[in-house]
């Protein structure tokens, strides 16, 4: 499982890296003569409503998907870990404040909240990242807090404190490394979600702007042709499934290996 997932993700990373060599056409070149062509020798995945090569666009789309997925989790990860670890380690009023913040955010459905924030800030990837930073940290914070609460009672931490190490040093050197494994597993599921929601925003016209080769945008572009030119939406959809399954399998595999209950 883990190996399959890893292989899938590595293949996608490779595709993204060498996209210019894999693509058979310029993903942005429109061709008025070759619109809505079905998959064939000239266009492996067919062409869309302005004659762009779907295969080349799917290939280039992997760059955006990975970019969104990997970059999108960084801010929530850093914020969530900082809040969660400090809250769990210090307890007391720090913990109370942090957890009330979490309680305020949790009742709202994740995507609805992200959507409303993007709607207020305006469409675009940057605003999606901002929305993720505002909302996504909660999951990491809870996870990091529970780990830190256990770890602060651990003997090696107590020992470090008796020896007079600073809180900062203990948090970074003792708590963080030991709290990391469940968080890494969570990152894998989160990457999948971030890619999916990013595409959903693109689909709704609130994410990446056209003519970007972004899978969600492509699925939206093919929406009205679904019964006459299915390939426009189908291939980016398939690509999204494959990348999502890849990350999910890595997460599952890691969880099993690290014996983490989820």
């Amino acid at each position: 499982m883990f190996v399959t997932g890893l292989a899938l993700v590595l293949v996608w990373c490779l595709i993204a890296l060498v996209a210019p060599w894999l693509a058979t056409h310029d993903p942005y070149a429109i061709d008025f003569v070759a619109t809505l062509k079905p998959p064939g020798a000239a266009h492996w995945f067919g062409t869309d409503n302005v004659g762009r090569d779907t295969y080349s666009r799917v290939v280039y789309g992997s760059r955006l998907a990975l970019y969104i997925g990997l970059l999108g989790v960084i801010a929530p990860l850093v914020i969530g870990m900082t809040v969660g670890l400090t809250a769990g380690y210090f307890g007391g009023w720090v913990d109370t404040i942090a957890m009330r913040l979490v309680d305020i955010t949790v009742p709202f459905p994740f995507f609805v909240l992200v959507l409303s924030i993007v709607a207020v800030l305006g469409p675009g990837i940057e605003n999606y990242f901002i929305a993720l930073a505002l909302v996504g940290w909660v999951g990491y914070a809870r996870l990091a807090r529970s780990e830190a609460m256990v770890l602060r009672q651990a003997e090696f931490v107590l020992a470090a404190r008796t020896m007079g190490f600073s809180h900062r040093y203990i948090l970074l050197r003792h708590i963080l490394p030991n709290a990391l494994s469940p968080i890494v597993v969570y990152v894998m599921t989160d990457v999948t979600l971030v890619i999916l929601f990013g595409a959903a925003l693109g689909f709704l016209g609130m994410g990446v702007s056209p003519p970007a080769a972004e899978w969600g945008v492509m699925i939206a572009e093919g929406q009205s042709y679904i019964s006459t030119a299915w390939w426009i939406s189908f291939f980016p959809g398939l690509a999204m499934v494959l990348i999502g399954v890849g990350f999910a399998l890595i997460g599952d595999g890691l969880a099993r290996m690290l014996r983490i209950e989820r």
């Binding site: 942005y28 429109i30 709704l204 016209g205 003519p211 939206a220 572009e221």
Partner: peptide
């Protein structure tokens, strides 16, 4: 543009 004009916008841009 509003999203429903994406196709036209793509053609204009090109």
């Amino acid at each position: 543009i509003v999203p429903s004009y994406a196709q036209t916008a793509t053609l204009l841009k090109a």
